[in-house]
Amino acid sequence: MAGFLLKRLAQAVFVVMVVTLIVSVAVRMTGDPAMMIAQGATDITEADLERIREGLGLNEPFLSQYLATLSGLFTWDFGRSFLGGTPVSTLIGNALPATLLLAFTSLLVSIVISIPLGIRAAIRRGKWEDQLIRILSLVGLSFPNFWLATMLVLLFSITLQWLPPSGMNGIASFIMPAVTMGIILTATNVRLVRTSMLEVMQSQYIMVARAKGLSERTVLYKHALRNCAIPLITFLGLQFGGLLGGIVVVERVFNWPGMGSLAFDAVAGRDYPVLQSVIMILSTLIVLVNLLVDIAYGLIDPRIRTE
């Protein structure tokens, strides 16, 4: 088991290093930040640009810039934003919790929708209700999320004036972004709940519970559901990664002060330190969650370890 853990950990470190390398190289190809900063000045000369580059630390060798970025994961020092000089750690310190909170809320929304629907579909297996639930959950998956977001804003913010259209300010402001994100996961989760429920319900111990005369409700929600929990939780771990990657568009529409918005502005402003730190941190988080899922799996099912 220790060997398995070490191997997985080494792989995770390798992945984070390569991802950071890819990102650092890619970011440096997006254009010259000095040009960007000097844009408003008239009669700018190459010497002016060189002076600005020197000030930004862009004349350091690439390797030392890369290592400095990577070491930020341990020192929480990612340098300063090229636009205005705010420490990147301050920006990320604000944006990361916003993104994580939204991601968690989205998972929550998806679970709250999926479990009852999945159970219902399992009970009504093969009936029209089962089909309807599956089709509806696929409709949720098929929405272009920015379009859905726009429609929600039109209805709930502009027409009904119930919910704030943007920003992170109070519980109400979480509803639309979390629903937009959560609905995408619902199709997969309904399916997962349905499949595991079907398996569990055929197991002997549910038969026993039924035979004991427990109410159907107790059987389903207390006994059967508990047994679906493990695959569901594992799967949510994997979805979390996907969620972090896909959150950019939704953050953009709702002006959510998260990592996606930060990255988007950073690309536009050629803000290397911000952009590479955001992607590096999100990647590291995804790797960590996958690692945990892997380890959990390894503990539950030793056969996985050999692979």
């Binding site: 900063i37 000097a38 000045a41 008239t42 700018i44 002016d48 002076r51």
Partner: peptide
């Protein structure tokens, strides 16, 4: 010198 305004 570190910023863009000086040149103006």
């Amino acid at each position: 010198a570190k910023g863009p305004q000086q040149a103006n």
